[in-house]
Simulated assay, not measured.
Amino acid sequence: MTIRLSPYLMMNGNAKEAIQFYVQALDAKVLFNQSFGEMPENPEFPLPEEAKNLVAHAMLRVGETDLMFSDTFPGQPSHSGDQVTICISINDIEKSKRIFEILSQGGEVKMPLQEAFFSPAYGIVTDKFGVTFQVYTEGQQ
């Protein structure tokens, strides 16, 4: 089993600018960058025009560390303090479920652990200490 913790920066519509800034400031390399408009369409939830060019997910490599980014989705609240979360990347679904369940105890589930087009098990939870974690299970569905 592999487990990694990575900082995840939630930006308020300026993730592209932040990515360019950190590439320059930290000599970072862009490993991945996808807009909401490049994601598979879901007919049940049409994508608003103002979301299409926003960053859905990006990853930079800074030295030996990954730094992840996303813009908040239009209409979703963006609060100071929610801007930095921790992404837990795990390659074992059962371990993801166990970690998510423990982090949920006394906390608040923001998105239930569920299958997504990019992960067999992904969810977001704020633990009882107010720290928000994204649990991301690696691997193909």
Rank of each mutant, 00 (worst) to 15 (best):
I3K: 02
R4C: 12
S6R: 08
P7V: 04
P7G: 03
N12V: 08
N14R: 03
N14C: 04
A18Y: 04
V23M: 09
A25I: 01
L31N: 13
F32C: 06
Q34S: 12
S35Y: 14
F36D: 09
E38W: 10
P40A: 13
P43M: 01
P48W: 02
E50L: 06
E50W: 04
A51E: 04
K52A: 13
N53S: 13
L54P: 12
L60H: 02
V62E: 09
F69N: 05
S70V: 06
T72W: 00
G75P: 04
Q76I: 12
P77T: 14
P77Q: 13
H79Q: 10
H79T: 09
V84A: 11
V84D: 06
T85I: 12
T85P: 00
I86Q: 01
C87I: 14
I90G: 04
I90F: 00
N91I: 03
N91W: 02
N91L: 03
D92V: 05
R98N: 12
R98D: 14
I99T: 07
F100C: 04
E101H: 07
L103G: 04
L113K: 00
F118Y: 08
S119Y: 00
P120H: 11
G130E: 02
G130K: 03
Y136V: 15
E138L: 14
Q141N: 11
